[in-house]
Every structure is written in structure tokens, then in C-alpha cells.
Amino acid sequence: MEGSQHYYMNVSDVICFDILVSAMKAENQSFGTDFLLVGLFQYGWTNSLLFVVVATIFTVALTGNIMLIHLIRLDTRLHTPMYFLLSQLSIIDLMYISTTVPKMAVNFLSKSKTITFMGCEIQTYVFLALGGTEALLLGFMSYDRYVAICHPLHYPILMSKKICCLMVACAWASGSINAFIHTMYVFQLPFCRSRLINHFFCEIPALMSLVCQDTSHYEYTVLLSGLIILLLPFLAILASYARVLIVVFQMSLGKGQAKAISTCSSHLIVASLFYATTLATYTKPHSLRSPTRDKVVAVFYTIITPLLNPFIYSLRNKEVTGAMRRLLG
């Protein structure tokens, strides 16, 4: 009897030792280990309601962007540089909101809130690539409006089809390269702390709090990258529209003024919302960060902006609404 008790005690000790070793290995190894997403809200009895709300927003955003892409493709009157860039923006928003929101919605109903290491890495890369591409594309769109209003006679030359394609290719390439560099660097760092990501998706600022080595030098790199990818295009937009407003108010025709102001104000509203929130996230020092505040701010550039973009550009644009009427007969 005593021998059997001694045997069971030894087995128990071995099991506890194995669990301890496994936990130590999980902390010291990054690959093959899942992360746990805290989410936007604390999960509870409202999970089903939150799932319905998020799923509805996602569906409306998908529908709006798909309709805008479809209208621009079908209506030959919208085959202009401005709407070509706008269709690219809708494609980006379509992919952008699909990168984070479906996983967020599923977590409301799923018992497991985990995301694999590879899944987190892919989500981070795609999110950064699309965000950087959109930031540059919005800057190119402001340049298009600047040329159309301030230099209308040179518009066919300065905004030719070749130049438009080069702008789009430059935006996609720059966003993708920037995302690749940051993703490869972050995911080779040792994640020695808790695997609990205090966010609703894998974002670099949230992941950096899990790294167990000094990341101050890398934070300067993130700051520099944010200033180039985000701040420079935003300053270019403000400079372009400052010049546009000067030219617009010198116009003698009230109808032309109204059309120009309506088009530019729509773009400026979207750009300001996108740049202000992303700059607030990626240029803030780690010591000043608040996980709750970061999650709320992230909602604006991950969900609100892709949701509003197609409606701001379509409902306030007579050419788009006219194309919709023609399509509906």
C-alpha cells in the first residue's frame, strides 16, 4: 500500500515537472505558440449583441465599398483619374476591414480567443501594408484635386493614365515593403512575457509590451516610419487644399465653387480622421500609452474609416449618385 502511494506521488511529481518545463519552454520560444486576444470589450452576457453590431457594420462597409467599385467599373463617365484612385481606395478599405473585424466578431461567440503565431504575423503584415498604402493613396488623391482645380489645362498631362498607375504602384509597393520590414523584425523578438495581447487584433504597439528586451531603439524606428508614411502625406494634403481653397474663392461662378468645396471637403474629412487616429497610435511613446485608449482609437482607422469612405464619397458626389441612378434605371 505504501509502495503504491509512493508510486503515485512520484508520478504526480513527474507530471508537475513536465508541466513546469512546458510552461518555461512556451515563455522562451516564440514560434508555435498562440496569442490570446483580450478584445475591445470584456466578454460577457452582451457577446451576442456585440456580434450582431459588429457583423452589421462589417456587412454595410463591404456593401458600400463593393457598390462603389462596381459603379466606377461599369459607368464610363467615371473612368477618370479621380475615380480610378477612389476605386483603389475602396479596394484597400474592403481588404482593410476584412483583416481585423471578422476575427473580432468571431471572438464574441467563440470560447477560444486565441490566434496562432503565424496568424498573428500575417494579420500584422496585411494590416500594416494596407494602412501604409491607404496613407500614401490619400495623399495622391489630394494631388489629383490640386491639379484639377489649380492647373486644369495641364490635368490630362499631369494625371495621365500612366502617371495614375505609377502612383498606385508606388503606394502599394511602399506600404508592402514598410510592413514587411516591421513585421519581420517584431516577430523575431523574444516574447518572454504573457501571451495576452490587450487588443482586438495583432498590432505592433500592443505586441511590443510582450517583448522582454529593450525596444527603445526600435520605437524610434517606428516613429520615423510613421512620420514618413503618415505625417508627410497629411502635410501634403493640407498644403494642397490650402492652395485649392485660395483658387476656389477666386472663382466667379458659385456653382463651380460649391462643387470644388464639396469634393475637397469630403476628402479632407476622411483624411483627417484617418491620419489623426493613426498618428496618435504610431507616434506616441510607449510610456504614455493606455491599452484602453489605444483600442478605442484603433476603432476609428480600422472600422469607422472603411465604413464611412464609400458613403462620404458617394452621397456627397453628384456624379456617383447619377451613376447609381443610371445603373438602377
Rank of each mutant, 00 (worst) to 15 (best):
G3C: 12
C120K: 11
I97H: 00
K111E: 13
L253W: 11
V60W: 03
A323K: 02
Q213C: 15
A105K: 00
T133D: 06
S265R: 13
S87T: 12
I237W: 05
L158H: 07
G132S: 04
Y43W: 14
S266P: 00
S265P: 02
S209K: 11
M208F: 00
F41N: 14
V53G: 05
S194I: 10
I304R: 01
V101F: 05
M141R: 12
N65Y: 01
G226P: 00
L308Q: 10
G132C: 00
S176K: 08
Y83T: 05
G39I: 06
N317T: 08
K162Q: 12
M141P: 01
I229G: 00
L230I: 07
S265Y: 06
Y313A: 14
I72T: 11
L86A: 13
L273A: 05
C150S: 13
M24P: 05
V54F: 05
T56L: 10
Q257N: 03
V60T: 13
N28T: 14
L166H: 13
T100R: 14
I229A: 05
P310S: 00
G132D: 00
L235F: 01
S30R: 09
T278N: 14
T33G: 06
Y220N: 14
K284Q: 06
V320N: 04
G175T: 05
V186I: 02
A173W: 02
L136I: 02
V60P: 04
V299W: 12
M324Y: 14
I312W: 03
C164W: 05
F51D: 03
I92K: 01
S12P: 05
M9I: 07
M82Y: 07
T183I: 07
I228M: 12
I57P: 01
L224Q: 11
L74Q: 15
I157W: 06
K255G: 05
F140H: 14
D294H: 03
V244S: 03
L288Q: 10
A23F: 08
G329T: 09
K111P: 02
L130R: 01
A105T: 04
V211K: 09
G175K: 03
L279N: 04
T33Y: 13
D294W: 01
I204T: 06
S22Y: 08
R195C: 10
C164E: 09
V126L: 12
L68I: 12
S240G: 06
K161E: 15
A61N: 11
Q29D: 04
L158F: 02
I237D: 08
L238R: 06
L86Q: 09
A173M: 12
M118Q: 11
T100Q: 09
T114R: 14
Y143A: 15
I269Q: 02
K295R: 10
I66A: 12
S225M: 00
Y241F: 13
A276T: 10
S174K: 13
S4F: 10
C16G: 11
T305W: 05
D75L: 11
R293M: 09
T215K: 02
Q5Y: 12
F140S: 15
D34S: 14
P102M: 10
N28E: 13
N107R: 13
A129I: 01
C212L: 02
V299Q: 01
A148T: 08
R325N: 03
L20S: 15
V147N: 08
S4V: 10
